[in-house]
Amino acid sequence: MMKKLVSYSLAIASLIICWHLASILLAKPFLPTPFAAFTGFFGLLLGGQLTNHFLISLYRILVSLLLAFLLGVPLGLVLGRNQALDKFVAPIIYVLYPLPKVVFLPILVVLMGLGNLPKIALITLIVFFQVVVKARDAAKAIPFQSLQAIRSLNPTTWQIYYHLIWPFCLPKILTSLRITLGTAIAVLFFAETFASSDGLGYFILDAMERREYSEMYAGIITMAGLGLIIYGVIDFIEHRFCKWQRI
């Protein structure tokens, strides 16, 4: 834990040093020094102007990830273990998977209004496909010997999923979730800048348009913090449910 803290601090410190140097060299108002940016950040944080935007963004992304996980994992695992079903569903997934789902945002907004719903739907849609494909491929890769081992114990299908397929696939699914997180946050930003009046994306773009650069950077710092928190959540889940991975 201590080690982790030290390495994270070092990483953040070196980023801040680079930023500071760049800001001095460039000497433009749209790249303030880290000190100025953080002063603005803490000012807004203490003033409470950021809290609501942060919470609403966090809510949107957490709900999206959870939904994508709950919908995608069971489907992916079943597809991975059921060839007949996979043959039928795989083409549908392959056609939809590379499609840039972001283009659906206007349609979702028309359908669902300006609130949380279209944003959550969009992020869920993007993460869902990643999760389905990863879960399916993981479930396909289960060693034959492991299957024979559990089959010889005369299990129900549900028991095979619970004791073998799910624990075998979970670490791989969490990894895919981590990788998708970057995309998910990018899409969150985009969705919040489109016909929206809250969330960190809105806050950042609004500050930019008002040329309030220290506020804009406060928003960007908060966005980075948001990503870090969700990484923390995924790490915690892995820590809790995949203990054997850490030996």
Binding site: Q145, S146, A149, I150, H163, L164, P167, F168, K243, W244
Partner: peptide
């Protein structure tokens, strides 16, 4: 089984 068939997560 030959490779003991134990589950690494248990």
């Amino acid at each position: 089984l030959q490779d003991h068939g134990l589950f690494p997560w248990k």
